[in-house]
């Protein structure tokens, strides 16, 4: 069953169609990759799903319910969490509080202070940041800030997690760790839709891949199908 579906999703910035008539779906417990050259419209598509911007025209459904027109906080509470391509951690707040915010406000059900504290501890442990509870988020390295964004998003208890370029700027070891993290999130039963440029990573963890180019979906399939697709190869070589 599809947890997320989009129909004719379109977004213009002035005369430019950043996303153009894209149909897509993500199934329960899948890891779906979204790739494409810079400026292809990947982040914009994520923005329409997380309600940062409204698609016009286009409809997006989450678990069968229409979510277009909702506010970001509503979409979050329904069970869609996200990370940001350009990291947006709360720099002057300790790591621990960054995560707690998500569990206080992003979940569908209210959580007590003690519950949220326990939850935050576990999540920081899960992403490998438990030693840095009290560090200010702004003092973390980029890799750790990205891990923090993941922990913070997970604190909202999502069913679907949108990850925007988790691995950009990471070294090989860190990429391997990030890939493991992504798979273990899925093992928790969370569906993943991820934008990624690191091909090794995307080919390694995704069940299915979608390719955007100039806002248009030009290919879709298993990692093997996409890797051998003539159109995709041309787009990437043409860059």
């Amino acid at each position: 069953m599809s947890i997320l579906e989009g129909e004719g999703v379109t977004k213009y910035f002035g005369g430019l169609a950043a996303v153009s008539d894209v149909d897509f779906h993500v199934d329960q417990s899948e890891i779906v990759g979204l790739i494409g050259p810079n400026g292809a419209g990947k982040t914009t598509l994520f923005n329409t799903i997380s309600a940062a911007i409204a698609p016009r025209p286009g409809v997006i459904r989450f678990k069968g319910k229409r979510i277009t027109g909702l506010k970001p906080y509503q979409v979050c509470r329904m069970g869609i969490a996200r990370t940001f391509q350009s990291v947006k951690v709360f720099n002057n707040m300790p790591v621990f509080e960054n995560v707690r915010l998500g569990s206080f406000f992003g979940t569908a059900t209210r959580m007590s202070s003690a519950e949220s504290a326990k939850e935050a501890e576990e999540l920081l442990d899960f992403v490998g940041l438990s030693a840095m509870n009290t560090t200010l988020a702004g003092d973390l390295t980029l890799v750790n800030q990205k891990r923090l964004e993941v922990a913070r998003a997970l604190a909202t208890k999502p069913e679907l997690l949108l990850i925007d370029e988790l691995m950009a700027g990471l070294n090989n070891t860190e990429v391997a760790q990030a890939m493991k993290l992504v798979t273990s999130i899925r093992d928790k039963g969370i569906t993943i839709f991820m934008i990624e440029h690191v091909m090794k990573a995307i080919m390694g963890v995704c069940d299915r891949i979608m390719v955007l180019h100039h806002g248009v979906k030009i290919a879709e399939g298993t990692p093997q199908q996409v890797a051998t697709s003539q159109t995709v190869v041309e787009v990437y070589l043409g860059e």
């Binding site: 997380s50 940062a52 506010k71 970001p72 906080y73 979050c76 509470r77 969490a81 996200r82 940001f84 947006k88 951690v89 709360f90 720099n91 002057n92 707040m93 509080e97 707690r100 915010l101 998500g102 206080f104 406000f105 992003g106 979940t107 202070s113 913070r152 998003a153 604190a155 909202t156």
Partner: peptide, 22 residues
């Protein structure tokens, strides 16, 4: 927790909204 949310707004409004803060 609302004090925490207000600080998160001061730090980054967009991130706060996507973490469920109205």
């Amino acid at each position: 927790k609302y004090g925490l949310a207000l600080r998160s707004i001061g730090e980054n409004e967009e991130a706060a909204a996507h973490l469920g803060v109205n």
